[in-house]
């Protein structure tokens, strides 16, 4: 290695050469202006009372103390957990079963083309803007003339009609169901790619030994794509904590806060109630949770890579 680097040193000595770090300069400046400064400002604002106009008034940790006592805030975080179930847990579990079924049964025994067409159907909602998905579903779930209620009537199940997004008892579950639909394609595609990487001989050996499909799935397939499962769970959990567009378009956090989530809660504080300091405190709290989660995941990943 040292013998390789010495001639290049000779080249470098002959000419004035800038260091590699110079290539980071545009990126560093851009990140400073768009990420670092706004983020620090947001954290600063969270320590003030501010209406968005005039000068902010120092408030110390007042906003955070208020947050701890604000039941609407805690409720929005409980809804975040529901979103984690709908966007991370359920899509990962369903995605695993679907990916394994597509891979083991369809791709191997019927044809890879059939498998990719089916995979495309599941992935399609992922490329849709969430605002458009919201329009589609709020019409399907509409109380009058909505496609779901009409379909229930047509099937003779008219007694099951609901105001799916307007009834506080159903709204959160309806939003969760839409999010499963939106999210499912992502784990499916990642897991199918992971299965292609996995070693097929283990699977075949287990099959020859007479292991049932379920046992092979549990003991052979799952351990082989464990890295993909971790990554998918992490990404989807973070996406679930950030969810905003779907709530804005489907329910605006209603009815009566039944589907409010922290990101929408902070948006309301910023732009509807003009309690900018309070909104900043909500978003800072959300950021701390997401970054803590990300750091834990990064640690797990580096540890896994070191082994």
């Amino acid at each position: 290695m040292s013998s390789m680097s010495s001639p290049s040193h000779g080249v470098r000595r002959g000419r004035r050469e800038y260091p590699y770090a110079l290539f980071l300069l545009p990126g560093a400046l851009a990140f400073l202006a768009v990420i670092v400064v706004p983020f620090l400002m947001n954290t600063g604002i969270s320590l003030t009372h501010w209406q968005g106009v005039g000068s902010p008034e120092w408030a110390g940790l007042d906003n955070y103390r208020d947050l701890l006592d604000d039941s609407a805030f805690w409720e929005s975080f409980r809804h975040s957990l529901a979103m984690v179930v709908a966007m991370a847990v359920l899509p990962t579990a369903l995605g695993l079963v679907l990916a394994a079924a597509l891979f083991d049964y369809i791709a191997k025994h019927i044809g890879t083309r059939t498998a990719s067409v089916l995979r495309a159907c599941f992935y399609l909602p992922q490329v849709l803007p969430i605002a458009v998905a919201g329009i589609v579903w709020s019409w399907i779930l509409a109380p009058e003339n909505g496609a779901l209620n009409e379909a229930l009537d047509a099937a003779g199940l008219g007694s099951l009609r609901q105001d799916w997004l307007g009834d506080p008892d159903f709204a959160l579950y309806s939003v969760m169901a839409v999010m499963v639909w939106v999210q499912l394609g992502f784990p499916l595609v990642v897991f199918m790619a992971g299965l292609q990487r996995a070693d097929p001989s283990l699977h075949e050996a287990a099959e020859l030994d007479g292991a049932s499909w379920w046992r092979r799935f549990w003991h052979v397939t799952l351990p082989q794509i464990r890295p993909e499962i971790y990554v998918v769970l992490l990404w989807c959990t973070i996406a679930a904590l950030k969810v905003f567009g779907a709530v804005y378009v489907l329910t605006k956090g209603g009815p009566g806060g039944a589907t409010n989530v922290p990101s929408y809660f902070s948006f309301q504080s910023f732009f509807e109630k003009t309690q900018v300091g309070y909104g900043s405190a909500v978003s800072t709290a959300l950021t701390v949770i997401i970054l803590a989660l990300a750091l834990v995941a990064l640690r797990l990943q580096t540890r896994a890579e070191d082994q």
């Binding site: 983020f39 947001n42 959300l286 950021t287 990064l298």
Partner: peptide, 15 residues
């Protein structure tokens, strides 16, 4: 990586 994970809500008002 962390910048990528930051929720936009924490940037939106200052931006």
């Amino acid at each position: 990586v962390l910048a990528n994970m930051l929720p936009q809500e924490a940037l939106v008002y200052p931006v």
